[in-house]
Write a protein that binds this DNA or RNA. Structure first.
Lengths: 210, 210
DNA sequence: GTCTATAGCATGATAGAC
DNA sequence: GTCTATCATGCTATAGAC
C-alpha cells in the first residue's frame, strides 16, 4: 500500500487536510477507530502516512478533529432548522432523521463517536457539550411553542428534549438495522402524538376514568 | 502478560468456558472488539490464550458466542416481563431500562454489537432476528391491551413497537452520556403519554379544533 | 483440553531526504 | 510540509509438550 493515490486533490494548498478528513470519515466509519489503519486512511486520501502526523500529530488527534468538525456542522444545521419555528423545526428534524439514518457512514460514525466518548474523558466532554447544545435548542423551541399556544406540556422542557434526541438516535439505529421498519414521517407523527398525550393529562394523575 | 490469573475458576470441568465468556464481556466492552486482545481476555479469565482457540476457534467466534448468549437472556427477560400483562410489562421495561442504562458494560456491549452487526452479515442477521423477537413481543402486548380496552391506537402495532425499542435504546445512550438527564420513570411516562396522544387523534387528521 | 513458546504479520509512529 | 523507508511493538493464530 501507501502507493494508492485514489483521490489526490490537485493543486490545493491545504487541500491535503480536506482529503484526509474525508478519507478518515470513510475509513473510521467502515472499520471502526481501532480497525482503521493510518495507512489505509492516507492511501484513500491519496497522500502519504507522514502527512497525517505533520498535519494532525497522531491518529487520535485526526479522529478528534474529524469529530469536532462533524459536531459543529450538525449543531449548526439543527439550529438553522429550529429557527424556522416549531412546525418547520419538526419537519427539519424528520428530514434530518431520514438523511442521517439513510447514511451508513453517518450512523456508523455516530456510534463510533459515542463509543469512543465512553472510553476517553476528552471526547466524552466534547460529545456531552454537543448534545447539550442540541437539547438546549430543542428545549428553547418547546418553550416558544408553549408560550405561543398557551398549552402546558406536562413534562419539563429539558426532559422532553431528552426524549426528542433519544428517539432520534434510537430510530436511526433501528433504521440502519431494518430500513423498512422506520417509514418517513414516523418521527414527526410520534412527537406530535406525544405532545398531545402530555398536554391532555396532568403529570401527577395516572389514567383515571378511561 | 499471559500470567495474570486473576480469577481462575477452580475445579470446574467446563468452567473455563464460563470464565472466558465473562472476561470477554468485560474486555470487549471496555476496549471494543478490535481494541480487545485475546491475551488480555485470557489473562482476565485466568486461563491461557490457547484455551480460547480450543474452546471457541477464534476471537470472532468467541465474540459471536458471547453475543448469542447475551441476546438469548435479553429476549427471555423481555418475554417474561411482558407475560405479566400490559401494566407489568411497562414497569418491567422501565426497570430493564434503568438497569441496562446503569450498566456501563451492558451499554458498551450493546453499541459494540450493533457496530459489529453493521460490518458483518452474519452478526447482522443475528441481531436483526433478536430485535425482531423483542418487537414481536411488544407488538403482541399492544394488541392484547387494545383488545382489552377497546381503544384504537392510531398507529400500526409494529410501528408502535419500533418506537418503543428505539426510545429504549436512545434513552440508554443518553443516560450513559449524562446520567442525570434520564430520571427513573421517564420511559414509562413517555410511553403512556404517547399512547394517550395516539388514541386521542385519528391518524389522518392534523391538529383540528382547539 | 490446556499449557508455553513462537511464528508471521500488521500496526502506529518516526527519521531524514527533498 | 510532504515524501519513502524503517523501527519497535503488539497482534492473532498455531505447534507441540503434557
Amino acid at each position: 500500500m501507501a502507493e494508492v493515490r485514489r483521490r489526490r486533490a490537485r493543486g490545493g494548498v491545504a487541500r491535503t487536510r480536506e482529503a484526509l478528513l474525508q478519507a478518515a470519515a470513510e475509513i473510521f466509519a467502515e472499520r471502526g477507530y481501532d480497525g482503521a489503519s493510518v495507512d489505509e486512511i492516507a492511501g484513500t486520501a491519496g497522500v502519504s502516512v507522514g502527512s497525517i502526523y505533520s498535519r494532525f500529530g497522531s491518529k487520535r488527534d485526526l479522529f478528534r478533529e474529524l469529530m469536532s468538525e462533524y459536531m459543529e456542522r450538525d449543531l449548526a444545521r439543527v439550529r438553522d432548522g429550529f429557527a424556522a419555528g416549531p412546525e418547520g423545526g419538526l419537519r427539519v428534524l424528520d428530514d434530518l432523521l431520514q438523511e442521517t439514518a439513510a447514511s451508513r457512514r453517518q450512523t456508523l460514525l455516530d456510534a463510533e463517536t459515542w463509543a469512543s466518548a465512553m472510553r476517553s474523558p476528552r471526547l466524552r466532554s466534547m460529545l456531552a457539550e454537543h448534545e447539550n447544545g442540541v437539547r438546549s435548542a430543542a428545549a428553547e423551541l418547546v418553550q416558544q411553542e408553549r408560550a405561543a399556544t398557551g398549552h402546558e406540556l406536562g413534562m419539563p422542557d429539558d426532559e422532553f428534549a431528552v426524549v426528542l434526541t433519544a428517539l432520534f438516535h434510537g430510530l436511526c439505529r433501528q433504521h440502519r438495522l431494518a430500513p423498512g421498519s422506520v417509514p418517513r414521517g414516523l418521527y414527526a407523527r410520534t412527537v406530535l402524538a406525544l405532545a398531545r398525550g402530555l398536554a391532555e393529562q396532568p403529570p401527577g394523575a395516572d389514567r383515571p376514568g378511561h
